[in-house]
C-alpha cells in the first residue's frame, strides 16, 4: 500500500512537470491577452480541484452523520483543508490575471464573490473544527459542512442576480466558447495533474488525521487507567 502511494506521488510529480511544460511552452499564445492567459492552465484546474474537494467533504459529512465512523470524518477534515488550499490558489492567481487584462485586481462579480464566500464558509468550517472539543467535533463539523454545501447554489444565484463580469465559462458555454485544440490539450493535462496533486494531499492529510485520532485515543485510554504518566 505504501509503495503504491509512493509510486502515485512520483507519477503525480511527473504529470505536473509535463503539464506545466505543456502550459508554458507548448500551448499557443492567446491573441488578445498574450502570455498572461497561461495563468488559466493553473487557475481553472485549481478551481476544479477545490470544487471536487468540497463535494467530497459534503459526501463524507453525510456519510459520517449516517454511519458515525472516524474514517468518514477523516476524509471530511482532509478534503476541507485541501479544498481551502486550492481555493486560496484560485483567489490569488485570479487577481494576478485580472490586473493586466481587466485593469483591476478584483471585482464583486458573481463567480469571484461566490468563490470568496465559498472560501469563507470552509475557513469557518476549519475554525469550528479547531475550536470544538473532543468527541463533539465530528458531529458539529458535519452539520456545518452540510449547511455550507447547501448554501453554495443560493450564494451563486443571488450574486449572479446582483452583478456579473467574469468571462463566461470557456468550456461548454455558449456558441462562441471553446478553446483551440492545442490549448485544450494543455488544459486537460493540467486538470489531470492538479486532480492528482489534490488526491496526494488529501491522502497525506487523511493519514495525519487518523494518526492524531490514534494519539488522542491512547491519551484517553491512559487517563482512564488512572494517569500512568
Amino acid at each position: 500500500m505504501k509503495n503504491l502511494f509512493i509510486a502515485f506521488v512520483v507519477f503525480t510529480l511527473a504529470l505536473l512537470a509535463f503539464s506545466t511544460y505543456q502550459a508554458l511552452f507548448v500551448a499557443p499564445t492567446e491573441q488578445t491577452m498574450g502570455e498572461v492567459q497561461r495563468i488559466f492552465y493553473y487557475h481553472v484546474p485549481s478551481a476544479w480541484t477545490a470544487g471536487v474537494c468540497f463535494f467530497v467533504n459534503f459526501l463524507a459529512s453525510v456519510a459520517y452523520l449516517w454511519k458515525r465512523n472516524l474514517a468518514s470524518d477523516g476524509v471530511a477534515a482532509a478534503s476541507a483543508e485541501v479544498g481551502v488550499t486550492f481555493c486560496t490558489i484560485v483567489l490569488i492567481t485570479g487577481p494576478i490575471w485580472a490586473r493586466p487584462v481587466w485593469g483591476i485586481w478584483w471585482t464583486w462579480d458573481a463567480r469571484l464573490t461566490t468563490t470568496l464566500v465559498l472560501w469563507l464558509i470552509y475557513v469557518s468550517y476549519l475554525v469550528l473544527r479547531r475550536f470544538s472539543a473532543g468527541g463533539q467535533t465530528q458531529v458539529l463539523a458535519a452539520a456545518l459542512a452540510i449547511f455550507g454545501f447547501v448554501d453554495v447554489p443560493i450564494v451563486y444565484m443571488s450574486i449572479r442576480w446582483f452583478r456579473t463580469q467574469h468571462p463566461s465559462p470557456v468550456m461548454g458555454g455558449g456558441e462562441n466558447s471553446g478553446l483551440d485544440p492545442a490549448m485544450l490539450h494543455a488544459f486537460f493535462w493540467n486538470l489531470a495533474a492538479f486532480t492528482c496533486v489534490g488526491i496526494v494531499l488529501m491522502v497525506v492529510r487523511y493519514r495525519l488525521q487518523m494518526l492524531e485520532e490514534k494519539v488522542e485515543a491512547t491519551h484517553a485510554a491512559a487517563a482512564l487507567q488512572g494517569g500512568s504518566r
Partner: peptide
C-alpha cells in the same frame, strides 16, 4: 464566525 458566511446570501437579499 460560522453564522456570517452562511448568511451572506440572505443578508444580500
Amino acid at each position: 464566525l460560522i453564522l456570517f458566511p452562511i448568511s451572506i446570501p440572505a443578508l444580500l437579499a
